[in-house]
Every structure is written in C-alpha cells, then in structure tokens.
Amino acid sequence: MKKTVAEILPYVALWALVSSLAYASDPSPLQDFCVAVNDSKAAVFVNGNFCQDTKMAMANDFFFPGLNIPGNTSNKLGSMVTPVTVAQIGGLNTLGISMARLDFAPYGLNPPHTHPRGTEILTVMEGTLYVGFVTSNPDNRLISKVLCQGDVFVFPIGLIHFQHNVGNTPAVAIAALSSQNPGVITIANAVFGSKPPISVDVLTKAFQVDNNTVSYLQAQFWPDNNGY
C-alpha cells in the first residue's frame, strides 16, 4: 500500500536530522592552533594558505623536482627527511596528501616523533630498517618490525614512531602521509629543547630523575633532520 505524503514526512524529517548530525563536525585542523579574534579585518591563513584563481594555475604548481637526490645524512642522527608537502607543492592545498623521502646513513636514526595531523605509510626502497610505533595510554605497547627492500609499514596518526637503519649500508624509504601538512613533533627536541625550557621541576618529576640529569639533557644540541 502506498503511503501518503503526511505519512512519509516524519521519516524524511528524521533522515534529514540524522544526516545533519552525521556531517555536522569540524574539519581536522592543519595548523597547531588558531586564536579567535573579533577583528573582521584581521587577515588569517586558513590551513596555512590562500587559494589563487584557478585560471592562473600552471603545471609547476603541481610539480616538485629532485626527490631522486639523496638527503644529507652527515648529522648526529645520521638521517635526513626531504618533505613534499603543501609548502613545496602549492597544488597540494586542500587535497589532504603529502610525501617524503627518508635517507639513512649506516645505523642512522629517525628518532621517536609524531605527526599530529597525518597517518604515514612507509615503503623501504633500499636497505634494512627497524621501525615501530607505541600505542596510546594505558598500554603503551610497542609494535615493531624489521623491514627490507619493498616492505611497507603504517604508522597511525598521532602515535610516536621511529625508523632505524640496522644495516651497515645506506637506506632509503619513501613515505606517504594523509595530510597536506602532517606536522612533526620530535619527542626529545620538544621536551628537552623547548624555548623557553620546560621547568626542571616538571621534568624531574615526569621522568623520575634528578635535576642534574634534566639540566644535562636541556643543555644538549638536539639536531633537526627534517624540513617540515
């Protein structure tokens, strides 16, 4: 039996309500923070960029050369990350993807870090890498594996992870990330190299060590191996 419009209308209204709730969510931010202001004349970058007129787009807006060039690994970490994000390719803006080349000297390390805005999928092109990530509280379980050429591994968004060349030859990997601006927080740099420094009292209690140990760590030079 066919239903009348009056009989169907409540179902349509319910569907509209459910649909609006399903889509009524904030987009994921592509910057660390955005301070609200009441000044309508205050110019801001939304997700870090303005958009140009589409009629002005050229091939070079979607192009990045040189990912075949090895990164300079002559640093304390023995690694270098060459990013290809919206900062390098303006045409990536709003597309939600990026990538990077990772170069490792023998036994080089990409130290524990997180990407607050992107999941990473990594493919080993050369060498052997020991990789892993740590799950969130309360388990903090390490999930790790040794990867060889052609192997692929995924690091879920926001989780602390690392890559270590466990071979005596250079290693190369290519990573793809689910954000045009995934960001990176290197744990040691952020905790012990912040400007101004985090209070020694905070760090001694957090890490259960003495003041001298914290002061020693804060006095170190924490190298940066990436261009994010």
Rank of each mutant, 00 (worst) to 15 (best):
M1C: 09
E7V: 06
I8T: 13
L9F: 08
V12F: 15
S19E: 02
S25V: 09
S25Y: 12
A43S: 12
V46E: 02
N47D: 15
C51E: 14
T54H: 13
M56D: 13
M56Y: 05
A57C: 08
N60I: 06
D61I: 06
D61G: 13
G66I: 01
I69D: 07
P70A: 11
G71H: 01
L77Y: 09
L77Q: 11
L77F: 11
S79T: 13
V81I: 13
P83Q: 00
V84F: 00
L95I: 01
G96M: 07
G96C: 05
M99K: 01
D103M: 04
F104I: 03
P111H: 11
P111D: 10
P111N: 10
G118C: 04
L122V: 04
M125C: 11
G127P: 00
T128L: 00
Y130Q: 08
Y130C: 04
V131G: 07
T135R: 01
S136Y: 08
N140P: 03
R141M: 12
L142T: 06
I143E: 06
K145G: 04
L147D: 00
Q149G: 02
Q149N: 10
V152G: 09
V154E: 11
F155R: 00
H161N: 14
H164Y: 15
N165V: 07
N168V: 07
V172G: 06
I174W: 12
Q180F: 07
V184D: 00
T186H: 08
F192S: 08
G193A: 06
P197K: 14
S199H: 12
D201F: 05
V202C: 13
T204A: 05
D210A: 06
S215P: 00
Y216K: 13
F221N: 12
F221M: 04
W222G: 07
W222C: 08
D224F: 02
G227V: 03
